[in-house]
Design a protein around this nucleic acid. Sequence first.
DNA 1: GTTGGTGCAAAAATTTTGCAGGGTG
DNA 2: CACCCTGCAAAATTTTTGCACCAAC
Lengths: 138, 138
Amino acid sequence: MDAQIDEILRKNQLSVTGSRKRILELFLMSNGALAHGDIEKKTGEKFDRVTVYRTLQTFLEKGIIHNIPTADNSVLYALCKDDCSEGHHHDNHVHFICSECGKTICLADVTVPEVKLPGGFLPHEYQMVVTGLCKECR
Amino acid sequence: MDAQIDEILRKNQLSVTGSRKRILELFLMSNGALAHGDIEKKTGEKFDRVTVYRTLQTFLEKGIIHNIPTADNSVLYALCKDDCSEGHHHDNHVHFICSECGKTICLADVTVPEVKLPGGFLPHEYQMVVTGLCKECR
DNA sequence: GTTGGTGCAAAAATTTTGCAGGGTG
DNA sequence: CACCCTGCAAAATTTTTGCACCAAC
């Protein structure tokens, strides 16, 4: 795990620092989406709030994580797949939001279907969000 | 138009007030999604910022509008179709967000394709957001 | 007249920015 | 050692809450 973290950071030309390692570790462990608040809690507020903001921003720019839309418009981040390059996400799986427990789940196996757009539109990224009840809450 | 607005408000057991009429009118005219900031601008700041917040909140609860998740996690609202009842939305058309001019366009003719979910998930609403360049900006 | 909505003020929460010190490569 | 990252402080922005007044029914 530790080696994996280092590799991800180095591959993106980022210096390996404590906060980056820890936050990246959280994403690898959680296997889901994290909010800014989650990260603060899970690190035990060991890092400055500002550092968390900047680290997330950096990860976003490098394409290590992406942000995902949620039902209540809070800000959630999730790990990108390996084939995300800088500024270019191929993260077109479906996100499921449970309206009961509020959890956001990445349905990695469900790919976003292609849609035909009216002429003139130049699509760049597709996102799909399904809301409903998850396994536990139904 | 004015009669239509009154009817919508009355149908939802809301008193007909200036701000509600104006904000609802904006949604009917825009035929697309509006951000909180858009509304403040388009009303010429005639109404208190707080009133706008509360009006939007009320409309949300009544199911007159719904919020749209966007790629950059800004908060957008759009009118619900007629068959939206309270807390029950069937607004499954595609939203297009232009990354150049920032406009959000409802592609009413493009329906969201059905996707197969893994067992256990009980879907309620499908939303799809496409980002890219619109006709004017490409 | 009663109920509910609005505006104002203030507080709370979230996010951004500047700068000096410290860790990384 | 040069550079980038972090923490602290402060500012800017966004959202929420309380209360008195006014408008809608």
